[in-house]
Amino acid sequence: MSAPTQSAGFDTGPRGYLRYFLAAFRKRLLLLLRYPVNTISQFGTILLVFFVVFYGGRAVAPTAISDSIEGIIVGYLLWSMSITAYSGLSWGVTREAQWGTLEQLFMSPFGFGPVMVVKMVVNVLESFLWGALTLLVMMTVTGHWLAVDPLTVVPLGALALAPAVGIGFFFGGLAIRFKRIENAFQLMQFFFIGLIAAPVAQYPLMKWLPLAQGSQLLQTAMKDGVALWNLPAGELAVLVATAVGYLALGYAAFHYCQRWARREGVMGHY
């Protein structure tokens, strides 16, 4: 009997890569379904924070909350989705190193980069799942129904999330090289709030910061019901540029850090 290399069913081309993506997606789905308490508490935490903001804010400053509730909903939606996408990479890398599976992922014939891209796409899809559910609950609870045209919201949301994914790659790379950086992970979550709430209209240069332009355009699309194709082309160009730019920077940093870690011999350490 021979070793089965290059036998039937072996493919590291696009079809094999798609198969790997489906396997990674299935794995994530299985874990979400198999550990319902984990899953529910993850979703519950997202909602709980929103309830604190909404009900707490309404008790303290009812007019302010009422006037800005739609902005809060969109901002919170983007924030919760960003955290899911970002932490999936940064925490994910740390956990995989602890499990000893990071080195297994590295030794894939698809290449470490493409394997991590799959991980990222799965995280983004998961963030959309939670995002959709969170949005539904938020709109139901507040009684404010926003314009949710999938053709507008999905591409805008994906582009808006891209910088968070880039930052996730960056911190994932730092985690591979420097290990214990959980405190920095957590700090970033608060930093995201500032970026999403950045006063872009007042200080236009801020639109070049991660998340800021995506937040601005999502607000316009969902609060005012403006379709994607009716948004100013220049503003969309900034969104695409920041999305691609931060994602590429984060990925490059990740690549640099993993090579650095392998030079130092600390790839699978934790």
């Binding site: 072996f10 990674a24 794995k27 874990l31 550990y35 499990w99 894939s108 698809f110």
Partner: peptide, 21 residues
């Protein structure tokens, strides 16, 4: 391996990671 997955699920995942159906 992934301890929260079953034995068979691990084998399937790592086969796919290795480019196998």
């Amino acid at each position: 391996t992934y301890w929260r997955l079953t034995v068979a699920e691990n084998l399937r995942f790592f086969a796919a990671l290795g480019g196998r159906d």
